[in-house]
Design a protein around this nucleic acid. Structure first.
Lengths: 194, 194
DNA sequence: AGAAGGACCAGTGGTCCGTA
DNA sequence: AGAAGGACCAGTGGTCCGTA
């Protein structure tokens, strides 16, 4: 079968009962390591890179066998990661923060500035996460609102599904923009087919 | 909701009981119309073009609404086609003959020659269908065995999933070819990762 | 017999909500 | 309260096999 390799971190559980959950994330500056029972944002983004490595391994195995080859991080990849010992990687978590990683990929400057600002204000991770949407929508606005093209064009982002909420925000904002402009200048807005 | 339009053919059922099945296909030459209660291969290929039209309509609706946009002929497209009145289009049929359509797209000359030969011999559709695999595998051989790339590169073929059996045949043939060559000349064969 | 297609099924994308 | 992730669910890709 698939024979996962690679392993970077124990599944925790030193002596107590069952396997422990991962420590929660806190807002950290770039380069800052979280102290105490916390994980920082560099670590969060590192998990996305690890998933990419696992996908590449799954792709190589698929090609070897002449099987259908995934282009995205699918359930199969998450399963593979788990078998490879990366039990700290799971689908709900990775999907939850995809847009944060997207901002990090697309404009590291803006991403870093946001992190510093939210750390300084002592905001929690959920608040920072929410704040990541806005600059992404602004980026989409500059690129004709095509968030799918933005993801698919970027080498590290193209393997992630566009989060539903980000897509909805882009769509809503595009409608607003085009309503106030009342012209077709905002990009390739497709008119009603019927 | 989706408001299908387009409609080309009645769902049959002139007076009798329930809706009739489509007439079975027979091997016809290019340009030849099937006589009697039969359908010809030009009609078969036309169904693939119709599916493409339905996909484009579904894509336009998705874009309009800012929803996820299918790149392939999915269940959603088959559902849309049915609602649009094209009840003669269904998934099992379209999947069954995809590789025949692929040959028609990739090398119409070879496809036409095959049709004439099998018609002359009086072969049935199933036999012709089976015979379509071989020239496709030959085409794949010339292009480094990457059948996915061959499909995705072609504008009309890229919307169809590569049939499992075609993929398997290409893989098996690649292994044979590379075994007898015992070199890496046959294309990008990925070695074992472990 | 040969062929069309309803209907099923394992595994997917998506994310809620019981848990810690 | 805030957050991590097991587990569920509607709809998918894939195709078998009861039907005509």
């Amino acid at each position: 079968s698939e024979e996962p390799v690679q392993q970077e971190k124990e599944a925790a559980g030193s002596g107590g009962g069952g396997t422990q959950r991962e420590h929660p994330f806190i807002v950290t500056e770039p380069g800052e390591v979280a102290r105490g029972k916390k994980n920082g944002l560099d670590y969060l983004f590192h998990l996305y890179e690890q998933c990419r490595d696992f996908l590449i391994q799954v792709q190589n195995i698929s090609k070897e066998r002449g099987e259908k080859c995934p282009t995205k991080v699918t359930n199969q990849v998450f399963r593979y990661a788990k078998k490879a010992g990366a039990s700290y990687i799971n689908k709900p978590k990775m999907r939850h923060y995809v847009h944060c990683y997207a901002l990090h990929c697309l404009d590291e400057e803006v991403s870093n500035t946001l992190r510093r600002a939210f750390k300084e204000r002592g905001e929690n991770v959920g608040t920072w996460r929410q704040a990541c949407y806005k600059p992404l929508v602004a980026i989409a606005a500059l690129q004709g609102w095509d968030i799918d093209a933005i993801f698919n064009t970027h080498p590290r982002l193209s393997i992630w599904y566009v989060p539903t909420k980000l897509r909805q925000l882009c769509h809503a904002e595009r409608s607003n923009a085009s309503a106030s402009t009342s012209s077709a200048a905002a990009g390739p807005i497709v008119g009603p087919s019927f």
